[in-house]
């Protein structure tokens, strides 16, 4: 009588399987953590650059606003009733420039805490998004002020023969120099804002 034998395949002990599976999970976790840390590092670098750009922009905007605000020139000759004087408040566009750039400088100071939060928590999305939206609006304000002032400064330098608007910079040379400097500074701050928005956009990218 032939014996029926059944062979039972016994696999590896369950403990080994469990431990190996745990090892795999741990490895995955480690890899994920390393990737996140790497992403965080590169985003932290961007956040630090953002902070430094903001500091530079604060200096430039305060400079532009104060230079335009203090731009004034009085000609050495005068008549019995008239004294020839030029100040920023003689031009509504320059008044708009001073107010706008002062607002922009204030905004930049108030945005510094958000920038610091982005350095401390590089993967946080909300501060970045808030900064990007605010920067876009403020970029528009800065560009508007700088461009409007630039148009008037150009007119003051060159005049316009078609409309009989004569150049005034032949008389008020120092005043024109100061206003031109302020416009150039504001234009540099526009470039800084563009860079800030680009940095925020890159930092918002998911990995």
């Amino acid at each position: 009588m032939a014996k029926e034998s059944t062979t039972i395949d016994v696999g590896e002990p369950s403990t080994i399987t469990k431990s190996s599976s745990h090892v795999v999970v741990d490895e995955k976790k480690k890899k994920g953590f390393v990737a996140a840390a790497a992403g965080g590092g590169y985003k932290r670098g961007l956040a630090i650059f953002d902070f430094l750009l903001r500091l530079a922009a604060i200096g430039i905007t305060i400079g532009a606003s104060s230079v335009m605000f203090t731009a004034e020139e009085t000609l050495p000759f005068f008549t019995q009733f008239l004294q020839f004087q030029a100040g920023y408040d003689d031009f509504p566009t320059f008044q708009f420039f001073v107010i706008s750039i002062a607002i922009v400088a204030s905004y930049l100071v108030l945005s510094l805490p958000f920038s610091i939060v982005s350095i401390v928590r590089p993967l946080a999305v909300v501060p970045r998004l808030i900064l990007l939206i605010s920067d876009t609006v403020v970029l528009t304000l800065t560009t508007a002020a700088a461009a409007a002032a630039a148009a008037i400064v150009y007119l003051a330098h060159n005049g316009n023969a078609n409309t009989n608007w004569l150049p005034i910079c032949q008389q008020f040379g120092d005043f024109c120099q100061a206003t031109s400097t302020a416009v150039v500074a504001a234009s540099i701050s526009v470039v800084f804002f563009v860079l800030l928005i680009v940095i925020s956009a890159i930092a918002l990218k998911r990995h």
Binding site: P92, T93, T136, L139, T140, T143, A144, A145, A146, A147, A148, A149, A150, A151, I152, L155, W165, V190, V194, I197, V198
Partner: peptide
């Protein structure tokens, strides 16, 4: 953003002259 800057500059400089 670049185009926003260009368009705002164009519109604002023209607005300053139109106001004048």
């Amino acid at each position: 953003v670049a185009m926003l800057g260009l368009l705002t500059a164009g519109a604002s400089s023209a607005a300053a002259i139109v106001y004048l």
